[in-house]
Simulated scan of single mutants.
Amino acid sequence: MTVDGLMNEGQERGRVTLQVIADKLSLSTATVSLALRDSAVVAESTKQRVQELARELGYVYNRSAASLRTARTNIIAVAFHDITNPYFTELLSTIEDTASRNGLSILLGTYSESLEKQNKVFATLREYRPDGMIICPAGGTTSANLRLLTSAGIPVVQVSREVPGTTLDFAGSDDARGMELAVEHLLALGHRRIALIGGNTLISTGNNRRTGYRNMLARHGIRFDPSLVVEGFGTRELGFRSIQRLLQLDDPPTAAVCFNDLVAFGAMLGLRHAGREAGVNFSIVGCDDVAEAAQWYPALTTIHNRQLEMGQSAAELLIRRIADPQADVRRVVLEPRLVVRNSTCPLR
């Protein structure tokens, strides 16, 4: 195995190294190494010469040798409880883009909302010796669950959700404020019986959004009614079932704020099955503003949580933490905004 991190897989003898490339181009091995990693400190003309020769000779980067030399793998792990929700797909996409721009690859692990599966995923990802991890923890995760990673010295950044009692970097949205904006919009339309569908106390986003919901009602002198709150993880099925049950109350709601857009999509379908229509005789507000929200019928009024910026911030926080493990802990909390479309209407 060469110490310079490059080898030609097809040559068992006399394999070509960084030194060979350097000699052919009359460059130093350090310059060749930087050029092959597309470093900004090397002139573009030099990078082009080096990379063209590497392609011509069919060189393959020897990651194992490089990681032995630098004690880094240039891999970051991403562990999410869900990637079926387009919100997390959007997060993952921008994390990968930011990582790639910085010469990093990603490993992905998922675990639904299962703590048991999460522990197994954390253990497996740790075996690959990633330089760091970005996690969105499963519901009910405690600081003890994260010690599997932190005790191994792996830098960890939390994204979207955060675990109480941890001192880890975090990138997310101001979830309480987002829910306040949603409820305030419905109150301005004349609604007073406003349901909250989805979320629970096992996750920070659920706690924070419920806090925002209650705060805005109290600010307008409206009594909190627990019969209008339905707990649960954010799925279309939850929205579909819950809205039909809420409509059967003696004093049913005229509007609903939903934990996320998936719940809102399900609630809109549930309304249709009950002979109602969002934006006509009932109001629905989602949360996240995934791409599908603008394409739904009717287009969904929702809270834009800036997930693309969130994913980029999480990746940048991790890159910073990897470079300086002793840096001060940072929390990037993004300001959400209300996006008004066609799923809300004045009280009739």
Rank of each mutant, 00 (worst) to 15 (best):
residue 191 H to T: 11
residue 298 P to H: 11
residue 326 Q to H: 03
residue 177 R to T: 13
residue 313 S to M: 14
residue 128 Y to M: 06
residue 61 Y to W: 06
residue 220 H to N: 04
residue 140 G to N: 07
residue 76 I to C: 01
residue 297 Y to V: 12
residue 124 T to D: 11
residue 249 L to W: 06
residue 120 K to I: 09
residue 43 A to V: 04
residue 162 E to P: 00
residue 94 T to P: 06
residue 70 T to W: 03
residue 187 L to N: 06
residue 5 G to T: 02
residue 202 L to M: 15
residue 228 L to M: 15
residue 221 G to K: 13
residue 224 F to Q: 12
residue 204 S to Y: 15
residue 319 I to K: 01
residue 301 T to K: 11
residue 223 R to C: 12
residue 25 L to D: 01
residue 250 D to N: 13
residue 106 I to G: 03
residue 295 Q to H: 07
residue 94 T to A: 10
residue 30 A to Q: 14
residue 277 E to S: 09
residue 229 V to Y: 14
residue 212 G to K: 13
residue 176 A to P: 06
residue 274 A to R: 14
residue 251 D to M: 10
residue 252 P to N: 13
residue 161 R to H: 11
residue 67 S to L: 02
residue 159 V to W: 04
residue 156 V to C: 11
residue 336 P to Q: 08
residue 342 N to G: 13
residue 59 Y to E: 00
residue 231 E to L: 07
residue 78 V to M: 04
residue 73 T to L: 04
residue 176 A to G: 10
residue 36 L to R: 06
residue 53 L to T: 00
residue 334 L to D: 05
residue 88 F to S: 10
residue 5 G to C: 03
residue 53 L to K: 00
residue 328 D to C: 01
residue 278 A to M: 05
residue 28 S to T: 14
residue 203 I to N: 14
residue 230 V to D: 06
residue 68 L to W: 11
residue 327 A to K: 00
residue 177 R to L: 15
residue 38 D to G: 08
residue 278 A to T: 02
residue 248 Q to E: 13
residue 136 C to L: 05
residue 277 E to H: 05
residue 253 P to C: 13
residue 27 L to T: 08
residue 66 A to C: 00
residue 149 L to G: 07
residue 331 R to Q: 11
residue 41 V to R: 13
residue 207 N to I: 15
residue 165 G to E: 10
residue 78 V to D: 02
residue 148 L to T: 02
residue 177 R to E: 15
residue 66 A to E: 05
residue 286 G to E: 04
residue 81 H to Y: 05
residue 75 I to F: 01
residue 71 A to I: 01
residue 154 I to A: 04
residue 306 R to G: 07
residue 39 S to T: 14
residue 114 S to A: 03
residue 4 D to R: 02
residue 181 L to R: 06
residue 134 I to E: 02
residue 106 I to V: 14
residue 67 S to F: 02
residue 333 V to N: 08
residue 289 D to C: 06
residue 317 L to I: 09
residue 271 L to I: 08
residue 128 Y to R: 06
residue 286 G to H: 02
residue 186 L to P: 07
residue 21 I to F: 05
residue 150 T to N: 02
residue 187 L to I: 10
residue 134 I to P: 00
residue 68 L to Y: 12
residue 6 L to C: 00
residue 162 E to F: 13
residue 80 F to W: 02
residue 126 R to D: 06
residue 151 S to F: 02
residue 307 Q to G: 11
residue 328 D to Q: 08
residue 61 Y to P: 01
residue 62 N to K: 00
residue 111 Y to G: 05
residue 13 R to G: 10
residue 110 T to C: 03
residue 13 R to A: 13
residue 119 N to G: 09
residue 326 Q to N: 03
residue 87 Y to W: 09
residue 316 E to P: 05
residue 110 T to G: 01
residue 331 R to Y: 08
residue 65 A to D: 06
residue 116 E to Q: 14
residue 167 T to V: 04
residue 48 Q to H: 11
residue 178 G to Q: 12
residue 159 V to C: 10
residue 213 Y to M: 13
residue 111 Y to T: 10
residue 72 R to I: 01
residue 162 E to H: 12
residue 137 P to S: 07
residue 108 L to M: 01
residue 184 E to T: 07
residue 196 L to K: 13
residue 209 R to I: 09
residue 321 R to T: 07
residue 312 Q to T: 15
